[in-house]
Amino acid sequence: MGTTAPTVKDNRVKLLERAMSRQGYASHALIEVLHTAQELFGYLSVDLLKDVAKKLKLPPSRVLGVATFYNFFSLKPKAEHTALVCTGTACYVAGAKDLLEASEHRCKRALAKGETPKLTVQQARCIGSCGLAPAVVLDGGILPRVTKAELEKKLDDLGV
């Protein structure tokens, strides 16, 4: 949150507040509220979690527990693009390791050049599409039965 311009920040804070009030600040709305927060801010900062805990009247450790349980939430800022590589059994057997390495290589390459990586690489244990293994979710869109070459091409197109 800290790095964004104040005007933008205010608006998002207001939107999050509205999401919580729509739920009547109910404790059981935690997941939905965190969803909104994640979508608004791209990640869940400690300050944000503290604010949610306070307003939904929940212990902070419970909020952190939920935020770290689901893969959808991230506690660190995400880059411009995200590649979620499924490393569940089916995808792993079908070659997820290569896809993961190819994606991570992009980040390492950027870092070696002293640039900030434009790609966040995430892993998931089975995204429930084993029939499409190996699968990568690139910026929210699923790449089914993707080969290393195809993935490299997509990443090139994104300029990451």
Partner: peptide, 28 residues
């Protein structure tokens, strides 16, 4: 006080105090 909870899952499952800060800093 509800200081503790479990965070993460699978092999990353671990105990956290408040928002994951050192226990000694826990306000609760």
């Amino acid at each position: 006080a509800h200081v503790w909870d479990m965070a993460g899952r699978g092999e990353k499952l671990h105990l956290v105090a408040d928002l994951g800060e050192p226990w000694g800093n826990s306000e609760n």
